[in-house]
Simulated scan of single mutants.
Amino acid sequence: MPTPSNRAPSWRARLAERRAKPGDGRPLPPYRWWHTLTRSLFLLDRPAGVSPAGIPVTTTYAVDVRQLGDRDDGEVRARLYRDGVQTAVSRLPARFAVLGGRIEVAARTTGLRRCHFVTDAGDERQLDPHPRSAEGLRARLHYRHPSLSRAIGTLATLIVLVGVCIAVPQLVETLTQIPQVADTVGTFTSPIRLSTVGNVAVTLALVLATTERALRLRSSWLDDLAG
């Protein structure tokens, strides 16, 4: 069986590699407090050899994603910076070649679901979020209060699961009210009916829960369905 280091990349991986374009050399913009809800910034330090003086040299990569998309076309892109200089840009999902491996970035409608470094040997780990980013603040909570963090994560997952169970039957009922659909598959009556206030409360809870999961890069198709 081939090892991860010599296995041929999938067609999705090859497509993601071709999607990456050279960067324009701009410096990495500083992270401001007002970026917290709209900008994800992840960092990776990689050994880059030894200086002539025998001092280990480290290269720092940064992946910058504006969650609301670029101003010109609204497309969500990942930008790769090496030591503060933009070297590549790609639509998502993205795959950037770096020292010793690659950085893979993927997202769902609810937020990032992946920003990982994958070594040439196939090992992987998540990049470190910028400490002032929303992801960084969530990571700090987990580091300082792991039990509370796990409880919040479990609650968020339960809310998403319950939200899907509430939302899907109502959505199916709405769809089967369309005459063309009703003529083909018949109608469906949801066993769950909530008041307007109840639906608003569920929606708000789902927004909070899916956001919390996105901050931990735990988004899945359930979050998209719940949203």
Rank of each mutant, 00 (worst) to 15 (best):
P2I: 06
V200N: 09
Q180P: 00
T36M: 13
L206G: 06
Y31R: 05
F96C: 08
L171A: 13
L222V: 10
L215N: 07
G101Q: 02
T176W: 02
V207F: 15
R125N: 07
H35D: 11
A20Q: 03
P27Y: 09
T38G: 13
A53G: 13
T154M: 14
S219Y: 07
V63W: 05
A205S: 08
W11G: 06
D128W: 03
A94Y: 01
V89P: 07
D45I: 03
G136E: 04
P22E: 01
G49F: 04
R132H: 12
P27T: 02
A16E: 05
Q67D: 12
S219P: 04
R19C: 02
T60W: 04
E135F: 14
T119R: 01
A201G: 12
R113G: 12
A205C: 07
R46G: 06
L137D: 09
D73S: 03
L217A: 09
A62L: 05
W221T: 10
A94K: 06
Q170D: 00
R7N: 10
E75Q: 02
L148I: 14
A20Y: 00
R114Q: 12
A121R: 01
V172S: 07
L112W: 02
Q170V: 06
W221V: 11
R102V: 01
F42Y: 12
A78F: 02
P4Q: 08
T59N: 05
A78T: 02
D72W: 09
E104M: 13
R144A: 15
I103V: 10
G84T: 05
L161N: 08
Q67M: 13
L148Y: 13
Q177H: 12
L44P: 05
T176S: 05
P52F: 11
A107Q: 04
E104K: 12
R82G: 03
Q67N: 12
T210S: 14
V89A: 11
A13R: 00
G122M: 06
R71G: 04
R46Q: 12
L208T: 11
L68P: 02
D73L: 02
A167V: 10
F42I: 06
A121D: 09
G111N: 05
L137C: 12
H142T: 15
G100P: 03
P131W: 10
V207M: 13
G54Q: 10
W33N: 01
D70R: 07
M1S: 14
P93Q: 09
A151F: 15
V85R: 03
A94L: 06
L44G: 05
R26M: 10
G74D: 03
S195R: 00
G136H: 03
A53N: 03
L68I: 10
E104R: 11
T3I: 11
I103H: 03
D83T: 04
G111F: 04
A107D: 08
A134S: 08
P9Y: 09
S51D: 08
V118N: 04
V50Q: 06
G74V: 07
D24Q: 00
S40N: 10
L92Q: 05
L215D: 01
A62K: 01
G23L: 04
T196Y: 12
L43A: 00
